[in-house]
Design a protein around this nucleic acid. Sequence first.
DNA 1: TTGAAAGCGATACCAC
DNA 2: GTGGTATCGCTTTCAA
Lengths: 323, 323
Amino acid sequence: MAGVSPGTVSRALADSPLISAKTRERIQAIAREHDFRPNAVARNLRTQRTGAIGVVIPLGHETGQHISDPFFMTMLGLLADSLTERGYDLLLSRIIPSDPQWLSRMASSGRVDGLIIIGQSDQAATLDAVAARYRPLVVWGGHVEGQVHCSVGSDNRLGGEIATAHLIARGARRIAFFGDPRAREIAQRLEGCRAAMAAAGLSHALQLFPTHLVADTSHADIVRFLGEQGKDGIDGIVAASDVIASSALRAMVSLSLHAPDDIRVIGYDDLPIARQTLPRLSTIRQELTAGADALVDLLFRRIGGEDCASFVMPPKLIVRHST
Amino acid sequence: MAGVSPGTVSRALADSPLISAKTRERIQAIAREHDFRPNAVARNLRTQRTGAIGVVIPLGHETGQHISDPFFMTMLGLLADSLTERGYDLLLSRIIPSDPQWLSRMASSGRVDGLIIIGQSDQAATLDAVAARYRPLVVWGGHVEGQVHCSVGSDNRLGGEIATAHLIARGARRIAFFGDPRAREIAQRLEGCRAAMAAAGLSHALQLFPTHLVADTSHADIVRFLGEQGKDGIDGIVAASDVIASSALRAMVSLSLHAPDDIRVIGYDDLPIARQTLPRLSTIRQELTAGADALVDLLFRRIGGEDCASFVMPPKLIVRHST
DNA sequence: TTGAAAGCGATACCAC
DNA sequence: GTGGTATCGCTTTCAA
């Protein structure tokens, strides 16, 4: 085309040092003129790197969930900022892991240089299996003893315990836990909740209501549950997330139940929405900004070959007006 | 490996109909055992399709902006839902178009099957140039006569006019427009604002304050501007977005200015945050859900070879308590 | 400093 | 039905 070999063109366009300045100039000029641009896919195939990080949201226990869920969006935004800052793109997938191969398919597809999984869902075993062979993998979620995959998240058990103890301290006795314990983080929060109830001698008074995470479908269920229970059935709700808590608060309004007088409600996450409910939501704060930074940081350390442990952050009680 | 040719393996794993059931079974079994997974990048290279759509946020006029901006995140979530529903992944890039090649590089990199651009920024000319040659491209933003690229967005000029007319109807006379007109949508909103002022014989009383879109850096500027103006300088603010409006409301609080009594404030977008300001924000609603669906729909029609026009949605005045 | 040629890992066409 | 083989578009040794 320009009278040189493809190899030379490649070098010229890559600003390789082992090429004369004038041939480089000439080739770049011609490339610009015919606006030629190297095909990234071919380059990826050859170099075995892509400059993209896969962000995946596994929905093992929850098929209806949308990416536009406030928690995911918050996390996603933070990850996007952090990754694009480092010059990486994000490949976003929502996956319903019907097929147990879902993760290793992503991992060895060659489309990404690393993987960030948001939430373990009910796939902790799969994550462990893949993590054993695929290094550049980090997970937002709960940590347990002996876990193979590297995770970042708050101490969910402690968070659940603090939340419940707070409700008890405020006078609640008949408490319901709203959340689906098939997800590891939720299971840990429930565990903490149980511990706090036991410590107060209230083990018998805990009800588990396995709300779906999906706001739309769960809301009707919540209304029904609260309708049946009334304020005589329960006087406290430990919600596994702010989204669930805010749904519960709205349900209470529609049933003329008042928070905190009739039922005290506490959430988890401290998303922006927690400040916008009526009454404003007491909750357990997770530092998502720090969490996202840690995820990205650990991921790149692992890409670099380093081996690094999970990162567990302390949860923090935020008292507002719903308790 | 299994005693057959690579071609046969490929067919077996792709469930091709021209292969015997038993060889298929046998090969798939072997593949599963050694957990072999085809390399997607190589496949992409050969088939020239990737199953991914690029979503890019050009920041031509605004380098500090983050993806976690509420408008982007809302739009991104809606697009992600819609695209993943159709089995496509999202490749998310934040691009600062210092290099005029930024778009065509993305387009012809072969990494994506189509491109959705969020906001024209100041790159409308580039978009037109690329759209002339690259079909699968749709843009969120403003539409102008003779525009080459296919866009989806609200009628920004009309929206700006409605917003301003509303302020005037509420008694505002000395109005400031907050927004950077280098972005096409903003320029159109400003144009509408000017028209409404002219219609009321108030052309002389319009001030333009070219706020940055970035919340952090602009806030201080807004405080300074409002401090200088005071309530005698202006009695109405037409903000180019809800984010800017909410920043203005907070600035007013810190200056002991009251909305709507001292200064009436109206936003644009009707994001969730508009309902959470104090006082709650009057604004011009854009139907983002419909917009995202339209973007995706038009994109796939264009990928299918169809030619389709821009889509302009009617803006709608939402009156709350800030005006 | 440049050219030739060997892959990267699949798919698809063409014979058999 | 299945096996060979060219090809997708680039990068990168190895020689010259």
